[in-house]
Nucleic acid binder design. Structure first.
Lengths: 182, 182
DNA sequence: ACGGACATGTAATCGGTTACATGATTAC
DNA sequence: GTAATCATGTAACCGATTACATGTCCGT
């Protein structure tokens, strides 16, 4: 039920329409909680039905501007402070690592090298992004920067780990394939 | 569709029943790709229908032992090597960080401290787990150790980041609340 | 006048979760 | 005999994805 809270959190910054919110999702929340158009409109309707947001004003082209209600703000704060964050998140990347034994050593090392390269690329992208976002002192920018810093640290850790794992696999291979057998 | 590949990967290690596979999920894959009982049995039926696994033998109590077919092995290898890993994974933990502006400074720092503590706990748990799993030289153990190492690095990075973010928030607070105002 | 952006909605499908339901075998 | 474990299955529901569908306003 986090899409609900993502929407409440964005609306806590100021009133917005579904269309506005979608654009915000595409830029600032895309890497943390992606959402589709269908989903956003449907959830806004549900939030309004539940009284957590209200339709503050209606504009041209059927535009509906939503504003968070007191109940909505309370729900948001409750979620942030009281609801324990999800323990595990599924990772198909790590699942593949479990099954690397199904490949030959070169392919397995290739997969890990690819992970390292991907992490390095993401790191560079985030470095660019952080330059662009550095201006702005609204709440979302301030805390968005904390999230970006996590992205930087995560991509660094992943690159280093993948490089380590690649060496580790090579080491295992060398140990099980003594020089005489080469 | 990764549950399907998780099952193929486990069956590539040797034939097993749905019941067996479930126990494996509960121990070794619990932190990477959790699966429920309903899900496993249903997916095994689908895999058999698709010809990716076969019922190798039937035992007492309606037990069905599944074995991966050649087509299944091919599908598994294709998935590991050719299908690009998922880019983003949703994180309600980071989503909360975005909305920390809705709390007062103490609460926000509390959330981050809590994250740091949680990461430290997970790190300790993994250190225990790695001791237990260190014996065993089958494929799953070898590559499972790579995954565990990632868990260790991830939990360390998260603890350090959360501690850094907590200080960062304090710094912001001090900057916006000059001594004269205290 | 027309194209692009603005703006909202519905329906089908899929993967995952929870709960329900049932029964056989084995160890004590 | 009986409790624990082994063993499989179904059904309802929920959140997310994809595709379809429709219409309006604004700038040039």
């Amino acid at each position: 039920m986090s899409l609900r809270h993502a929407l409440l959190g964005l609306l806590a910054q100021g009133p917005a329409s579904g269309y506005d919110l979608l654009k915000i999702f595409e830029i600032s929340l895309a890497n943390v909680w992606p959402a589709t158009q269908s989903q956003v409109y449907a959830e806004l309707t549900r939030l309004a039905d539940a009284g957590l947001v209200t339709v503050a004003s209606e504009g041209p082209r059927g535009r509906k501007e939503y504003a968070v209600s007191d109940a909505g703000l309370a729900e948001l704060r409750h979620w942030v402070t009281e609801v324990p964050p999800t323990r595990v998140s599924r990772s198909d990347m790590l699942l593949r690592v479990f099954f690397l034994g199904q490949l030959d050593t070169d392919q397995a090392r290739g997969y890990l090298r690819h992970l390292a390269e991907g992490a390095a690329e993401r790191h560079e992208q985030l470095k660019q992004l952080i330059k662009v976002v550095t201006e702005g002192d609204d709440d979302l920018s301030v805390h968005g920067r904390l999230v970006l810093e996590w992205g930087l640290r995560l991509s660094t850790a992943q690159r280093e780990w993948a490089e380590w794992a690649e060496r580790e696999i090579q080491r295992d291979f060398d140990r099980n394939t003594p020089p005489a057998a080469q």
